[in-house]
Design a protein around this nucleic acid. Structure first.
Lengths: 154, 154
DNA sequence: TAAAAATACTCCATAGGTATTTTAT
DNA sequence: ATAAAATACCTATGGAGTATTTTTA
């Protein structure tokens, strides 16, 4: 069984839900196949990723999840980038920002990008600062505007 | 059809072999399934990755291959890292080197690592300078010792 | 004893194989 | 004309479902 992205998504889901059953629901599959798939992955790796009852990541499992998040983000990025190139753009910058950046900072960025780099597409996503920090680490964003008490550019 | 690692390996193989038939042989599958899989991936992405007869990457295909190489390397790294953590190590450094480094440089690195960082495992691979350069770019190695005319540390 | 994961089995979706046709040089 | 990819059809591996048992908190 080659380690593929599907298995990585499964392990990440279990880690985030803290339960095989809830993860299965989120993944829209039944619990038994999920248990089996993860069990086979663990046999394949020769490493236990979770302790059971209660479900809890092992140290190795934490390492796997951290890597898996990055791989999943990279795959999504690969798809986005491929489509962008086909569409004539030469690159994509995935921008994350908090609401407070939506009225001043972001429009200025977009105007500048449109003028100075017409081949670059901006994929913008609004979320909170914690998600931005995690997303930046995971490679889900290329550029983030997290909360600041006051901008110094006024 | 979710974009998975298998498909990425297929596309990379075709790009490297410059031919569906030769790539199929290298992947140990027949040519028709390979053509079909790539065709379905192209439909899924809405993007042509190869021109046919002669087989040649499109611009979008090049972007995809570049991303795919990184993802594949990251998956391999994830597996290595997970096993290493399970084995009690806190990290792995994948070292590539040319034969000429095997007698002086590499043993010294290993001795130093054993003494100063017992939790770190070295995964060493011997190959040639060109492969080292490519591997470093692809993330297959963390540290390389390519050919040098003479070391300055003697 | 009750909730959650593991087994046992069944089914079917799809990755892969073989035979053949199409296409571009 | 010929070599390489596409198409058509078939097979079978393994991913997912249902029913049930095991585990431990």
């Amino acid at each position: 069984m080659p380690v593929d992205i599907r298995l990585m998504r499964y392990v990440v889901a279990i880690a985030e839900e803290g339960s095989f059953g809830r993860a299965a629901a989120r993944l829209h599959i039944a619990q038994p196949p999920l248990s089996r798939q993860v069990g086979e992955l663990e046999r394949e790796l020769g490493v236990r990723l979770f302790e059971r009852r209660p479900t809890r990541l092992t140290a190795a499992g934490e390492a796997f999840v951290e890597s898996a998040r990055k791989v999943i983000a990279d795959v999504d990025r690969a798809v986005a980038r491929t489509k962008a190139v086909a569409g004539g753009a030469v690159g994509v910058v995935r921008v994350g920002y908090v609401v407070s950046a939506a009225y001043e900072v972001l429009p200025r960025l977009q105007a500048a990008a449109r003028k100075q780099a017409p081949g670059i597409r901006l994929d913008v996503t609004e979320t909170d600062s914690a998600a931005l920090a995690q997303g930046l680490r995971d490679g889900r964003y290329d550029l983030v505007f997290p909360a600041v008490s006051r901008t110094s550019t006024d």
